[in-house]
Design a protein around this nucleic acid. Structure first.
Length: 202
DNA sequence: CTCGTTACGGTTGAT
DNA sequence: TCATCAACCGTAACG
């Protein structure tokens, strides 16, 4: 709601992504064959931004902005997480500080890359929910209350209806994907189209 | 005129 | 709980 106005008269919030509804319209108009420069003028979004969103869309298939903020794991590497999971499985009542001691004792970590107790607690809470069963596998970012769609990288892909314009020699169209109905704009259709948790506004 | 790129001033969020 | 800091943001401007 607090925004600045760009040279084209459009409203934007510095540092924040454009609303999904607008991102979607950019892609839709392009799909309709409208030139990027015209989309820029019609929607009052800088052409640089239109260019970026369209480029991102046709290489990832997603209209969503990239993941902002956060940090890369430092000491809590996948290997460490795996060990923590094992300790917890073998002794569900184990304390975080005990896990910490074990990581050191077992030589999984040295005193410089040893996770803090609060890091371990967070891992236990976030990455290892109910230890009930859980695959022994690597990867997995398992959210306790997982949002509908799978936890793909960061942007889950979003493939568009009728193949046609942008199915470039890339890899877009995600694996399982239903055919979608043809719809034009209407901002409230975004969630339907994406089929996921997206807040259009705020 | 169109559009790819990028400096800039900004915000975010997992560690 | 709180700060850090590298990730991303859109605009403006250059070419």
């Amino acid at each position: 709601l607090f925004g600045e106005v760009n040279q084209l008269g459009g409203v934007f919030v510095n540092g924040r992504p454009l609303p999904n509804a607008i991102r979607l319209r950019i892609v839709e108009l392009a799909q309709l064959g409208i030139r990027p420069c015209d989309i820029s003028r019609q929607l009052r979004v800088s052409h640089g931004c239109v260019s970026k969103i369209l480029a991102r869309y046709n290489e990832t298939g997603s209209i969503l902005p990239g993941a902002i903020g956060g940090s890369k794991p430092r000491v809590t590497t996948p290997t460490v997480v795996k060990h923590i999971r094992t300790y917890k499985q073998r002794d569900p009542g184990i304390f975080a500080w005990e896990i910490r001691d074990r990581l050191l004792a077992d030589g999984v970590c040295d005193k410089f890359n040893l996770p803090s107790v609060s890091s371990i607690s967070r891992i236990l809470r976030n990455k290892i929910g109910n230890l009930s069963q859980q695959g022994q596998y690597e990867s997995g970012k398992q959210a306790p209350h997982p949002p509908p769609q799978p936890a793909l990288p960061y942007n889950h892909l979003y493939s568009y209806p009728t193949s046609k314009v942008p199915n470039p020699p890339g890899m877009p169209t995600l694996p399982g994907h239903m055919a979608m109905h043809r719809i034009w704009p209407s901002s409230h259709s975004v969630t339907d189209i994406l089929g996921i948790n997206i807040q259009l506004d705020q």
